[in-house]
Design a protein around this nucleic acid. Structure first.
Lengths: 213, 213
DNA sequence: TAGATTGTTAATCGATTAACAATC
DNA sequence: TAGATTGTTAATCGATTAACAATC
């Protein structure tokens, strides 16, 4: 089916988790049907955007009626979680890395921590969940054997820059990047999600300081 | 000077920390001058964008020559850090909260952790840096007395929803929000920076799963 | 002076919002 | 049938990119 495919804009994809959270909440409150207008009001957006977004995936709604909440839950779960559990390796088991690995493993749905790596003897051997931190020199062999899909990068910029070119060879298909190194530009065929908490905080500082608006 | 003011677009503000990082690196490498073209290449963006962005703050460059790196460092530091150190309180001293408070206090420039609050007896009394976790019932009084500027929200969605309307009264001018509750819509006059790590991970999952692109 | 590169205006692109015919 | 609300096309808005005159 060539040319049938329609690219989903990234902004839409990034809104999916938020839709999902709100729809699940509605479902738990026993709401059975919701209009784009009411959903938009909850989310602080416009009814147009809700309809446009849902229609990227092919109209879940019923004209004159609205959206069936249960169906919406199912469709969003299909979008977000079908395809099975994703296995993740942590690279950099410092404080931030350990916290994020715990988050992924325990609080997030659809992900599993399968290994953790560091070069600091202080943290090697330490347990994250039931995964022990290994020396990073084992990383290549581990990936060859277990083919994890996700790499969590919680290492300094310099180390990330060194590691980046290796990622495709390791078979990694998604990177959750907490390092300052900007991966997006340098990788193709690998999904990258950058979480630059330092930048985030700095930009907040600017806005608090600046007289503007 | 009415109407002279020109609003800086949020996307530009969010790029400032990244410019700053790269410019500092150049400065440390002894680079004295850089053109928008070369800087853009480093950043993976366009020369046009670099020039447009810098010109929001009034041309730091010299036609025919480029940008003086040292001057750029100074100007960006003026933008990002002038106005003095910002004091921050942590609300929610769980694992994520403690990690982020540590980051803000120790790794980030221009911020200082001055208090931490929770309601869990398990963590109350515990030290973060040299700040002990207090019971959250002390929050209002603490803010009245010490007027911290930043609140770090590391609490569940429900608690954040309850807390949100209080923030203006507390004199908070910036929120670094790690809760799922979407503050942006509900606050005016307070800068909000949302870090939705759960959403971030979920959207990565979608992109890894989806056949697209 | 000639070459380079900025500051700034104009053109393009994409995302958001509005409008409305289709239809439950 | 009338009212409501979607799916979808059109209009608007803002951000990014391109172009070029100003000027070092």
């Amino acid at each position: 089916m060539p040319n049938t495919y329609q690219k989903i804009p990234l902004p839409v994809i990034k809104r999916l988790p938020r839709y999902y959270r709100h729809i699940v909440a509605l479902h738990q409150n026993g709401v059975e049907t919701i209009s784009s207008k009411m959903l938009a009001a909850r989310l602080g957006t416009t009814a147009s955007q809700v309809r446009q977004d849902f229609n990227c995936f092919g109209g879940f709604g019923l004209q004159g009626v609205g959206y069936n909440v249960q169906l919406l839950v199912r469709e969003l779960e299909k979008l977000l979680f079908s395809g099975g559990e994703l296995s993740a390796v942590l690279i950099g088991a410092g404080r931030l890395g350990r916290t994020m690995a715990h988050f992924l493993d325990v609080q997030a749905k659809g992900f599993k921590l399968v290994a953790a790596f560091d070069h600091d003897p202080e943290v090697i051997g330490r347990l994250l969940g039931n995964v022990p931190v290994q020396h990073v020199e084992n990383l290549v062999e581990f990936c060859k054997e277990h083919t994890p899909q996700i790499a969590m990068l919680c290492i300094p910029e310099k180390s990330a820059a060194d590691l980046a070119p290796l990622l495709p060879e390791l078979g990694i298909t998604g990177v959750w990047n907490f390092s300052n190194y900007d991966l997006s530009a340098n990788l193709t065929g690998i999904a990258v999600e950058n979480v630059h908490i330092g930048d985030s905080l700095q930009s907040l500082g600017y806005r608090v300081h600046s007289p503007a608006e």
